[in-house]
Design a protein around this nucleic acid. Structure first.
Lengths: 110, 110
DNA sequence: TTAAATACCTTGCAAGACAAAGTACTAAAA
DNA sequence: TTTTAGTACTTTGTCTTGCAAGGTATTTAA
């Protein structure tokens, strides 16, 4: 309830996060920590406790698959990869996103 | 779990709804049913069970105030009106929204 | 006096974001 | 060789929110 500006952003991110993950993985496979970094670089701060369960949910929905890969430094990494079903979902999200952007524009204009 | 396309839209709308309400009330005061209509016209389908509690929450946060007004046909209407605090919040949401739009653009581009 | 239309409200459930704490592997320092 | 630091993945519990479903109240017209 304290940091109102941050809370506003946090609320708005909801629902858009899944879209971001699929978009990132549509470009190339990645492991959780690197996804976190890319989100951070794009100004979308997310914490581990949010990302990991989300990746698992998307995997369980068949939108993602993964493989383990050894790392030269540190523990093995779980590389996630978008599936064909994930790509279909992404296309739906693309148009859903455009729709929402248009909706906001409509409301702001009239 | 059935209508995937609609579910995708529903997920994405989350968090943006509060922004829509404040934007609508920033233009002129309105009562719940008319807000529902405007949202519907702008392609953002929302049901009563979502909107009423949301209006009450925003009122309790001091973002909105309301007054009762008799209607020529049907029961009295509760007209909601944005407060100064609500306008401040709206400005924060404007920039949060712009930030998210930019974030998606960044992720899609790189 | 019953039905239909208009409005507002509440309850209970489910999903999801996040803080916080935990597990596990590797490499380098003490 | 034990400890520390760094990297990475996972889980638990809490809080917020969206929504389906059902409920209350007022007015007008059949």
């Amino acid at each position: 309830m304290e940091n109102s500006a941050e809370n506003v952003r946090s609320q708005m991110r909801k629902g858009v996060l899944e879209y971001c993950i699929l978009s990132i993985l549509d470009k190339k496979e990645a492991y959780a920590s690197s996804i976190l970094e890319e989100l951070k670089a794009a100004n979308m701060i997310v914490v581990e406790g949010t990302l990991y369960p989300l990746l698992i949910r998307q995997k369980n929905q068949g939108l993602l698959s993964y493989r383990w890969e050894e790392s030269t430094q540190g523990p093995p990494r779980k590389y996630y990869c978008i599936t064909e079903k994930g790509r279909q979902q992404l296309r739906e999200m693309d148009s859903a996103w455009q729709e929402i952007v248009d909706t906001i524009k409509t409301i702001k204009e009239n």
